[in-house]
Design a protein around this nucleic acid. Sequence first.
DNA 1: TCATATTATGAACCACCATTCTTAAAATGG
DNA 2: CCATTTTAAGAATGGTGGTTCATAATATGA
Lengths: 209, 209
Amino acid sequence: MDVMSRKERERLAHRSEILRAAEKVFALKGFFQTTMNEIARTAEFGTGTLYKFFKSKEDLYFTLIDEKTDEIYTKVQAELTREAPAIERITNVLFFELEFMERNRDFFKIYTSEGGRFEWSIQNECGKKVHEKMVRYIHLLAQVFQQGIDTGELKSFNPLDLAHAFEGIVHSFIFEWLIHPEPYSLVSKAETILGIFLTGAKEGKEEIG
Amino acid sequence: MDVMSRKERERLAHRSEILRAAEKVFALKGFFQTTMNEIARTAEFGTGTLYKFFKSKEDLYFTLIDEKTDEIYTKVQAELTREAPAIERITNVLFFELEFMERNRDFFKIYTSEGGRFEWSIQNECGKKVHEKMVRYIHLLAQVFQQGIDTGELKSFNPLDLAHAFEGIVHSFIFEWLIHPEPYSLVSKAETILGIFLTGAKEGKEEIG
DNA sequence: TCATATTATGAACCACCATTCTTAAAATGG
DNA sequence: CCATTTTAAGAATGGTGGTTCATAATATGA
């Protein structure tokens, strides 16, 4: 049952088109170097039209990030709060993340570049929202690690430290994949990531004799 | 023996003062939001004077990064190419890095924000230089891991993957430390980082014996 | 000290956008 | 079809900030 009028539906469609165009341009040039004009041209709208949907460039930018992060975070959250061994949940989340980034290269370029600008982002009203969501995600992850420790699956490191370490590794693999000139499957790195994170780099002393 | 004239020495001193001021302002506001005017005011020079030392804002920015990275990379490089067990070298480098960042909070804010802007940075002539240095560093690290694998100290993961994972963890701990409101010792996290990286998160099933 | 050369200065210039606003076009509906 | 309302457009506006340059300040050295 469609409760929206044709007008409303069209309006929404136009909004998404603008967001899609913005994503492309922001990913290519970063926030400060993309102009509203260019986004408008890419989306095939007039410049003024953008302001019918978003009250400023910042608003457009953060809305973009906010809606996309929601898309992945809801999925990840569902998996993390499931009833299952911690390692299994972490593994699945890793696959989610990698697969999502593989399908949303542009988005991650924007997302990752947010990392650098925290001073500015965090001051900003919309930026704060995005940042809080990242924090909540890390804490959720830490909670799962805590459970893994409790069940004896994991060593008793500080769970928040584990979460940071895990995200650090994942992030750096995604980053590497992004700047790599010839594309390869990001998901194929999952085994490696898990291997290093779970069993560590050091060769276990195999005291044979 | 001083081969520089007083003039030359003064000129050099002024240059450093400008760089120091720039570091402070860039760290606080990021590249696009700091103005040459503000850097000049901070350094107590006229705006035009900056252009006697640096041909543009970009030049100033990348010179800053370039010279600081040299400072740490030479130290790190010396340690990495030393004759010693791989794990020992990695451990020392980790302490270097953390200690350096602890003394150069501002610099790392700039450095990390470079991560995000790779499209732009890499196109840029000066940016390319900085990027190449990062790549060289990672490869050096990978080489050490390779040696560690050869000597049986480390498991035979792909050494480049190990290097990325290691830097990912370190980076994420530094990042966390940066945004944390009340300061704590970064160096104190070294044990944790090494623990996670070397032995992994999973509780050991005491493989064989 | 004074004439000259050198250097520093910051006001002015100019290009660049985010945003607004007038105008033109398209819906609407009688 | 026409009158009226709604919406889209992109030119015009205003503010900003990197860079330059004419001038002031300072140094030099005779």
